[in-house]
């Protein structure tokens, strides 16, 4: 299903994306400057109690910041992977090759996903290395692996969402709509169903919660892992199963709509 040539082409194409390059440089600078500031504050305070708080805060801030930027990178990539082929008029040439349209979609999405995961992983390793080399903080690697795994799943959902939206709008519009839907999707929770009264908002919530990949849930698990929270395995399995099933359904819808599209 994945075409290797097209997968490599996606990475080669998107690694030149100015938005991604900017975010990459920005992340590195933020980690370096932020860390330097934390060290300076610690030295000037010179209180052991405050030092521990600042060290832990540095770790949390770095992880949250990297997660935020990784999602942003995924949104940028998602809004361009198909759009750039359409605007550069390369799409008819690609679809004239002996590949199915599903293979095209999956190869492009996988390429963008690998790139965003690589961005997240590199930033995470860089951030943790900076912390470990200059501070005596304990890093729980198991938590980082757990957090990385769920963050990777979340990034896949974000890319699928953005790519789906990009079929129907230009690059900027897709980018903005994806951000809005992404923020909304993080706010849909089961708690809203506790209210008895019927409303349109509740119906939308119901649909979003059960019928779309739960980005908020993946994000919550990822961040909680990092904070050292322990999850019940059945809760994790349910979350992954729901995410996989809804992602599969939306990929199928995307493929069906794309099959009908004329290029």
């Amino acid at each position: 299903m994945i075409n290797k040539t097209l997968l490599i082409n996606t990475i080669q194409k998107e690694i030149r994306n100015k938005g991604v390059i900017f975010l990459f440089i920005f992340t590195i600078l933020f980690i370096l400057v932020g860390h330097k500031a934390a060290v300076t504050i610690k030295m000037s305070l010179n209180e052991s109690n405050m030092n521990t708080i600042i060290s832990n805060s540095s770790q949390t801030v770095i992880i949250y910041f990297i997660s935020f930027c990784a999602n942003f990178v995924a949104i940028i990539l998602a809004s361009t992977i198909f759009r750039s082929d359409i605007s550069s008029r390369v799409l008819p040439q690609i679809l004239s090759f002996p590949i199915s349209r599903l293979s095209y979609i999956v190869s492009r999405i996988t390429g963008a996903w690998l790139l965003s995961v690589a961005y997240f992983l590199f930033s995470l390793i860089f951030g943790m290395t900076i912390l470990m080399t200059s501070e005596s903080i304990q890093i729980d690697f198991l938590s980082i692996v757990g957090s990385f795994a769920f963050m990777s799943i979340e990034l896949l959902g974000v890319i699928l969402l953005g790519a789906f939206i990009s079929f129907y709008g230009n690059r900027l519009m897709s980018f903005i709509i994806t951000i809005v839907v992404y923020i909304l999707s993080k706010s849909y929770t089961q708690k809203l169903f506790e209210y008895e009264s019927f409303s349109l908002g509740k119906m939308v919530n119901l649909f979003m919660y059960y019928c779309t990949p739960r980005l908020g849930e993946m994000s919550y698990i990822s961040e909680s892992y990092m904070a050292g929270k322990v999850f019940d395995i059945s809760q994790i399995i349910m979350a992954v199963v729901h995410f996989t099933a809804t992602t599969g359904v939306w990929l199928f819808i995307m493929k069906t709509l794309f099959d009908k599209r004329e290029v």
């Binding site: 290797k4 040539t5 082409n9 550069s88 390369v90 008819p92």
Partner: peptide
């Protein structure tokens, strides 16, 4: 089959060789 569209275009940063390599791989 192979197809040459009315207005051939490809990713601007590709070299001629890498463009043909892409086509050869896809074929």
């Amino acid at each position: 089959l192979s197809y040459l569209p009315e207005k051939f275009t490809f990713y601007s940063y590709y070299t001629v060789e890498s463009t043909l390599r892409f086509y050869a791989s896809m074929y």
